[in-house]
Amino acid sequence: MSILQDLSNDLAAAVQTASQSIVRVEGRRRMAATGIIWSADGLIITSNHVVERDDNLFVGLPNGDRVEATLVGRDPTTEIAVLRVNATGLTAATWVATSDVKVGHMVLALGRPEADVQATLGVVSAISGEWRTMAGGRIDAYLQTDVVMYPGFSGGPLISADGAMLGMNSSSLSRGVSLTLPAVTLQRVGPTLASHGRVRRGYLGVSAQPARLPATLISQLGQETGLLIAAVEPESPAEKAGLFLGDTLFHMDGASIRQMDDLMAVLTGDRVGQAVAARVLRGGQALDIQITIGERN
């Protein structure tokens, strides 16, 4: 019996540890949801879909206080929103990497839609690599569990058996499957939202499709395809850089461009405004071209 007591008590202790950094987020009429204390100076990270309005937001703190909150930023593509509260004595969450757990490990989903923290238990069902949400957001790792997502649990953490936070749960990432946004994605998007209010994305202004390169280039580059530009948007960074319909883009900022994903990977927010070197095939000739990356609206 004692091993059962140990298991049960350890689970409850993990919940208690994590509870210090879990808040209630009141951002919609229907029912409150959950958020996680991102920084001791008052930044709260939560699920984008539970913040249905831009003002009249409130947060319930672990000590029971209910305080006003302001919306700092949101990114619908990764389902993340950041709020700010004016409060002291906050305990910021500590995060661990997805590599800290394996398929089969016990995990708990926590939520605070009311006063106290609630929990559900499950195991890690699957861990995999980078994926994109239906809205196009890039998530650094795929983390699936079989926890029950109780009402109001969105915006709350998935914790490991010792109470460390693996990521943030959101019921709208997938229907019928419990998915968690890993800590690494929160750490990438959160600060951007905190300082810019939204996630910047690079923009070229082209419509393109993969096309097979000529044999000489294939053997020269060790690359079979490039991106054939099918349309160039007027006034866009692509047009300003001198890109034409029919150009085949095959290299950009040090990376081989074989298909759309490769181009998306180069059009990052931190490259907005930067001039990068690119190579295109035009009329059978390889050309060097400079492109200043713009920002997507």
Binding site: M31, L108, P113, E114, Q118, A119, T120, L121, P151
Partner: peptide, 13 residues
């Protein structure tokens, strides 16, 4: 079997 989600008088559902 499972874990206690919560205890109390208020269940929104």
């Amino acid at each position: 079997g499972g874990v206690v989600i919560g205890v109390g008088k208020n269940l929104p559902e």
